[in-house]
Design a protein around this nucleic acid. Structure first.
Lengths: 334, 334
DNA sequence: CTGAAAGCGCTAACAA
DNA sequence: TTGTTAGCGCTTTCAG
């Protein structure tokens, strides 16, 4: 690999001049600049970002740390991040933790030791992970899940409100025994969505019954198992609110396998849109999240945090929207 | 951020000794080592990977460059890569090109300038991109799509054979006018799958009719549009072979919207499994690819390439398997 | 077994 | 406008 010295020698200038041409910083005599550019071309010179990063003590890479690369929620979000990052001159790399705190910790280490310019993270676990970044003064934005006790920019959706909308919709459509499949205990979004479900019930003078609640793993399998367990109840629930997209899919798979008709025998509303929802019969009522915008907002916060590290942290909450489709058609009266 | 000098001073040793403790390279007196470790803890010392990388002129990051992060094919593949990488002490970062050569080029630049330890790429475009890596002696493995004229490790599936199996299956199930939706012109997998389709037809003394072929974009929308265009034909096709998972989804969506019964009015076979295939009615016959293994094999080749840069390139071809489900049920005789 | 010192490739004062 | 030079933080000879 040619270095900046090789180029300098060939162009008969100093390394500093080459650096100036490469970075377009200072004014360089056009003749020299041209000579430098030619030398670069001839030597196929490519700046060594590692050396540059060391010298400048900053990099141009953002890490986006997410918990499930297989969930379209995150892939859409990542696109939002990418589009903003690119315009601001950063490259985005993705790190997939599979909801595993060990993996998350490893990627945090990588982000720290590699001196990444910034991190956008949907934290799987406790606050201390995020605080490691904050303490090390790495610009960081938390996305999707609030971290209590971390003083950090955050982008959320109105989980509780969305869940409440969904549940209210089921109530008003005439469903009587509405169950809930929420996410893992201790995960922020899972707790908020459960709270919204509960609030809606209580607002309509329904009893909140913990027996009708299951905790899944935010993946399809968990939704399937939770649904199966709910189906064993007597009396059986006649509707369910599922706390994320993949668990909705799993729950519906279970209903299909059990030959239970949706919505005739079981109303279904899910949180977050299901990919290829059109293909699923019947079409699914969901609480739609602005996933792409979530990514955009996070990326914008991150650029601002990088520009002004000492600004006070912001929390942005985006709105969800209830998309009524066929899986929650009004209950025909007996 | 504490540096190695800070630690050395506190532990009253030389930076070299700290380095030895950190890397466990040479033998260090246990007393000193303990002093160093304590100093590290007290200062929350974290080695600066940028400086280390510069000094060692190698890094510990792999880039996986893929064309569509929204396609489960790639997400499963990435998991295969991650599992191997982690064991070998590398971190994996993902780069999404959205099939855009400009983005691809940018990520290649990033991989080069950041001196990444290795690259696994599913190239969207021409050979020259990959050759930039090979020429720069960056360890690289090409995955999913062969690059003609690049002397490089490659992991593929038997696209032609799989496509031929799928088409033969439709023929033997009694379908008469079998159309094909393949991928973008010039994309390796698209060409091979089209060739398999054609070969199967000709092997069964059917005429290959270019009017029955459409080129989609490997995404759902493209599949939808291609299907719509095929439906305008008179006589209409009575079966289709779709060249990847998302286009299969799009094609089926189009059929649903057009109220065309599958398989009664249109047999469907897709290449690559569709996520949540259970939910799609009827269940879809597909050519299943070993996506996770694809990633594993690629990662293994990459570790070998890094260990022995001058070994001759290998091409590995994994087998696909026809998964027969309901969307291609034997045609009932008229 | 330990320390001194050179240098990875680049940038940014500072001087000329 | 250009060049000289001193590091960024780390590893790794080479002496001791």
């Amino acid at each position: 690999m040619a270095t900046i010295y090789d180029v300098a020698r060939r162009a008969e200038v100093s390394p500093a001049t080459v650096s100036r041409v490469v970075n377009g910083h200072a004014n360089v005599d056009p003749t020299l600049a041209e000579r430098v550019r030619r030398a670069m071309r001839e030597l196929e010179y490519r700046p060594n970002a590692v050396a540059r990063n060391l010298r400048r003590s900053r990099t141009t890479l953002w890490a986006v740390i997410i918990s499930d690369i297989g969930n379209p929620f995150f892939t859409s979000l990542v696109r939002g991040v990418e589009d903003v990052a690119q315009r601001a001159g950063f490259s985005v790399v993705l790190c997939n933790t599979d909801e595993d705190p060990t993996k998350e910790s490893q990627y945090l280490d990588a982000a720290l030791t590699e001196q990444m310019a910034g991190v956008i993270i949907s934290p799987s676990g406790r606050a201390n992970h995020v605080n490691r970044l904050v303490d090390a003064r790495v610009p960081v934005v938390v996305i999707d899940r609030q971290v209590s006790g971390a003083h950090v920019d955050t982008v959320l959706v109105d989980n509780e409100h969305g869940a409440s909308l969904a549940t209210t919709h089921l109530i008003e459509s005439g469903y009587e025994r509405i169950a809930c499949i929420t996410g893992p205990e201790g995960v922020f979004t899972a707790m908020r969505r459960l709270r919204g479900y509960r609030r809606a019930l209580e607002d309509h003078d329904r009893e909140y019954d913990p027996d009708l609640v299951r905790h899944g793993d935010f993946r399809s399998d968990g939704g399937y198992r939770a649904m199966a367990s709910l189906l064993a109840l007597r009396p059986r629930p006649d509707a369910i609110f599922a706390g994320n997209n993949l668990m909705t899919v799993g729950a519906v798979e279970c209903l299909v396998d059990s030959r239970i008709e949706v919505p005739a025998e079981m109303g279904v509303v899910g949180f977050d849109d299901v990919p290829w929802a059109h293909l699923v019969r019947p079409s699914l009522t969901t609480v739609a999240q602005p996933t792409y915008e979530l990514g955009r907002e996070a990326a914008q916060l991150l650029t601002q945090r990088i520009a002004t590290p000492d600004r006070p942290p912001t929390v942005i909450t985006l709105e969800t929207k209830l998309q009524i489709r066929d899986s929650s058609l009004p209950r025909s009266q007996p």
